[in-house]
Write a protein that binds this DNA or RNA. Structure first.
Lengths: 268, 268
DNA sequence: CGCGAGGTTGACAATTGTCAAACGCCGTGG
DNA sequence: CCACGGCGTTTGACAATTGTCAACCTCGCG
């Protein structure tokens, strides 16, 4: 795996220096015509809710695109923090490599979603982000974002909104892990994927998983054998059709009902 | 239980109106001498890292204190969002009341910690916050915070830092729930409490739990009987002394070792 | 065509939940 | 002041979900 490392920009506060430093990073394409104002993902992404000339001002912010090949890191835990990244195409996972060698998956990220917010607090990314596909992201240098949002209340508001919704998202995973049995966690996961694909204009009922059973299991706190068995059970019950990574949801209501079940035997 | 409700301030954007509206809330004491500049919790709280005159400017931000009696809500999921709250004294839990009646605990909050960030995104608090003690909090009206942080880069930076660290905190709970067995989760919990008490100048090895076994279990994704059994086991092993809610950590290294164990039988 | 990673399934074992009983602590009311 | 009642805690016996280990299968790729 190739590791993409970029310079720490903390010692070079001025914007021009920042740009030069970032330029040393691998795989960043500058001035390639990437603009929020013409991006179809705008409403799902950081500029969501901005209007008129404010959108044009966002274009200053996006420093450039960066390609990440399947299996490569976008960044790793411990790398110096300097940018947020918005997914343009492809699919990522956030993961932690634990001392004992296990790979713990903490999230999956698709088009329009913003990654890297865990690095703001410490100046160092707190997890890895790994491409599950050949991917493309927009790099948003953080000091630019801070400066721009000071002068653009609508951006400030929306940025805080995105930070906050990341907190809410994490809390919903805690809810899955803390209060649902394996069956319910997997149902919630598939409904969540379906909903996110729908918001992006894809089919709500048919999609390809970009991650392995092991990665799903790690994310949902269960072993890959359990994931596999549950897929089979759902298929037997006529709720979904599963063949390898191709998922078709046949009975969305049925899946939702699983979440409601007054769990006779709660997991924990 | 008494529910403390406060007005929605969205329809009254101007600061003066905001102040009048908040004044209608129960239990808020205005101008009672609460000041960040003289607060001992400053470094742990929102003004952390600010210097000189910037600290003085924070005083504008803190609208007043508010007392919440044991068992009362500070706010409830669904209440309109207008303020963040910093804990001055006492102990809180964040919790969600689920349709089936279960009470899911998503966090515990002690002195100096900031609560309510889950409401920024939607304009509505996403969970309840319940006092486990008789408590006192500082109310930080959010529109004030936004305005002040636009003109005070050091505050902006630190506010973003706090939002980000909330994301990191949530992720560490996900790590507990997703990758550790019950024994490890409880050990991690006790070490986490110990570390937070230490940061506030209390004993690292001796403290009272403010929450019940049921609440601990809910937070850690296990039943209260399991919590109880594990406390007993830890006591038998000489790691801690537990009598009701009084905890004494006798062997911190031993607790840490539990976390390292190459889990022969991982939970999930 | 064969290899290897990923996926499925089975038999068994382990952790953890369930149900039940008993105990201690504490505040309320007689 | 004491008794009572309720909530929280502890402990036991048993059952359930989920992990473990192992075998086999599928598919894509060199």
């Amino acid at each position: 795996m190739t590791v993409v490392t970029v310079q720490d920009v903390k010692s070079t506060p001025r914007a021009t220096l920042l740009l030069r430093d970032l330029d040393r990073g691998e795989g960043i394409n500058l001035f390639d015509g990437t603009h929020c104002s013409t991006c179809q993902l705008r409403e799902l992404c950081l500029p969501g809710g901005l209007t008129g000339r404010d959108i044009g001002r966002m274009d200053e912010l996006v420093y450039g695109r960066k390609r990440v090949k399947r299996g490569q890191f976008l960044y790793q835990a411990g790398d110096p923090f300097h940018s947020l990244y918005a997914v343009r195409t492809g699919f990522f996972k956030s993961n932690l490599l634990m001392e004992d060698g296990r790979d713990l998956v903490t999230g999956f990220h698709m088009m329009g979603e913003v990654m890297g917010m865990d690095g703001i607090g410490t100046g160092t990314y707190a997890s890895n982000v790994t491409a599950l596909d050949d991917c493309e992201v927009c790099a948003l240098p953080y000091t630019h974002l801070e400066n721009l949002s000071r002068n653009m209340p609508s951006l400030q508001v929306h940025f805080h909104r995105i930070l906050s919704s990341e907190i809410v998202r994490a809390r919903s995973v805690i809810l899955w892990l803390g209060s649902m049995c394996a069956e319910q966690r997997l149902a919630a996961f598939m409904l969540n994927l379906s909903q996110r694909f729908t918001a992006r204009g894809y089919s709500p009922s048919e999609f390809y998983l970009r991650m392995t059973r092991v990665e799903i299991g790690s994310y949902l706190g269960m072993k890959h054998e359990t994931v596999s068995r549950l897929f089979s059970r759902f298929q037997d019950d006529g709720l979904v059709s599963v063949r390898q990574r191709r998922i078709r949801i046949l009975n969305q209501e049925g899946l939702k009902n699983i979440l409601e079940q007054r769990v006779p035997s709660a997991p924990h």
